[in-house]
Amino acid sequence: MIAASLPQELTAWGMFWAADWVVKAVIIGLALASIVTWTVLVAKSLELRAAIAAERREHALIDGALSLADIAGHPQLAASPLVAAALAELRLSTDALDDREGVKERVVSRFERIEAALGRRMARGIGLLATIGATAPFIGLFGTVWGIMNAFIGISAAQTTNLAVVAPGIAEALLATAIGLVAAIPAVVFYNHFTRRIAAWKALLADCSAAVLRLVSRDLSRGIRVG
């Protein structure tokens, strides 16, 4: 008899349309956050896959070279900022190549700034995942608290605790918590995944930096003047 008298359709869609406007706003915001999470997943996965593959090819070419001159005009390394930075520093230090340690120190300084800039660029979008993962459950909880508060107001107005009065409002409130978890859990998982992948990419970038620095050191030891 109680179930037959329920005034609302207790489905997710029905609860959404019957919810208070604040709860609706919370659910819509969380849904948008979930869309952002999956968009970052697709975009960053493609970006990282391409970047890691490029770094592996670059490292293989640089590590197998005998001198910086061997790779200076290589088409696959034309866009390499590390090779370009090493060549630029050697050109600027033409009159100071006898100071090998000074040259290498300046090359390392250039590499550090390049690695930092590339790292910041690769990490774009990851902060959104961290923010969504940290805040979505609390935003959903806010919607839940607001919805339950409205449910109690409804109980007071109806002067009854009948399930037909209590259940819809509480169900609508709990829907906000559920949507918050749906938005937060993938964001946290993806954030941790991309943190590991970016760390692997940074390790490859550091390997490339070390390989270029070895070529610079080798050329300086041989007295070869590149550029």
Rank of each mutant, 00 (worst) to 15 (best):
G125H: 02
A164T: 14
A199V: 06
G227E: 09
E55S: 11
L68P: 00
S156P: 02
D63V: 12
D20G: 07
A203T: 13
Q76P: 00
G14H: 02
L128M: 15
V22L: 15
A117V: 11
R56Y: 00
N162D: 15
V182H: 05
T161S: 14
A3P: 07
D99M: 01
V145N: 09
L175C: 04
G29T: 12
D20M: 04
A123D: 12
A78G: 06
A43Y: 01
A31I: 10
S93N: 06
H59L: 15
T131M: 10
L41I: 01
S67G: 15
A53H: 03
A65L: 15
L48P: 01
R196F: 12
L82Q: 04
G64I: 09
I148T: 04
L32P: 05
T131Q: 07
W146I: 07
S80N: 10
S93D: 06
R124M: 06
R57V: 13
D63M: 05
A171K: 00
A130I: 13
W13G: 08
G127F: 02
G133T: 02
V36W: 11
R196A: 15
I224R: 12
R121F: 02
F152C: 14
I132H: 02
A31E: 02
E101S: 13
E47H: 11
W201N: 09
V166I: 11
A199M: 11
K44N: 05
N162E: 14
V22G: 14
I198A: 09
R225E: 07
R57A: 14
H193W: 03
A86L: 02
A86I: 05
V26F: 07
V189G: 01
A96S: 10
L61Y: 04
F111D: 02
R91N: 09
T161W: 08
V23N: 09
A187H: 03
G14T: 05
L118S: 14
W38C: 07
M149G: 03
L77H: 04
D70F: 08
G119K: 08
A167N: 08
E9A: 15
L97H: 04
G154K: 09
H74V: 06
L129N: 11
G169K: 03
F111E: 04
R121P: 00
I153P: 04
V212W: 01
E55R: 07
A183T: 03
L141F: 13
A72M: 03
T11E: 06
D70Q: 14
G125K: 03
A210T: 02
A134R: 11
S221Q: 13
A31L: 12
A178S: 05
L129M: 12
A134P: 02
A4C: 10
W13K: 05
G14S: 09
R225H: 08
L175D: 00
L174T: 10
A33M: 15
L204I: 02
T177H: 08
M1K: 12
G102L: 10
A151Y: 05
G125R: 04
I62W: 00
H193M: 08
I27V: 09
T135V: 08
R57L: 11
T195F: 07
G223A: 03
